[in-house]
């Protein structure tokens, strides 16, 4: 039996403890230890983005990051985005703009889109090209990306009009 390491971190705002093998990936931990299956193992090599999560306000591929490295950090997964009162703005935009077909890549895509918009907050509004560049690490085989960019562009527009963080 290989060793396990105790880690303590914030998971979707909740102080969390886990015991993980040191070579376990963050994605495996989320899926196997916490039943958070929104993030997907679709390539395991950082080439598709389906496992994207936020850690300390940066997105990463959870399939590449070691779970032990979550220790002391703050993580948000797709499951932490919606509130009791409903979908987050970015999630709702993806629904309303028809970005979601099979949806398998969408938890990762939405996390990356949210990050993209938040990173850019207060700066010159993202263009469609900027949005597409920001999503380059997320592969979708259904949508052809147009409706994904539509959704993110709508959030950007809304944010610009209200002058508030909408995502």
């Amino acid at each position: 039996m290989s060793m396990e390491v105790e880690i303590n971190f914030s998971l979707n705002g909740i102080a969390t403890q886990a015991h993980v093998p040191p070579t376990m990936t963050t994605l495996a931990m989320l899926r196997e230890k916490f039943d958070l299956t929104g993030g997907k193992l679709a390539c395991g090599e950082g080439e598709c983005g389906a496992c994207t999560v936020l850690i300390d306000d940066r997105t990463i591929n959870a399939c590449l990051m070691f779970a032990v490295d979550c220790d002391g950090r703050e993580m948000q997964t797709i499951e932490g985005l919606a509130s009791a009162s409903g979908l987050a703005v970015m999630q709702q935009a993806f629904v309303d703009h028809g970005a979601i077909q099979c949806g398998y890549c969408m938890p990762g895509m939405i996390m990356q889109a949210k990050y993209l918009v938040e990173q850019n907050s207060g700066q010159q509004a993202l263009t469609r090209d900027d949005i597409a560049r920001g999503l380059e690490g997320n592969v979708c085989r259904c949508s052809g990306y147009t409706k994904v960019v539509d959704a993110v562009a709508a959030v950007v527009l809304e944010e610009n009009q209200t002058g508030e963080r909408a995502s």
Binding site: G38, G39, I78, E79, L87, F94, V95, G98, G103, P107
Partner: peptide, 10 residues
């Protein structure tokens, strides 16, 4: 799509 909200939330 009616299944989109659940897909968007994981």
């Amino acid at each position: 799509k009616p299944d989109a909200p659940d897909k968007a939330t994981g």
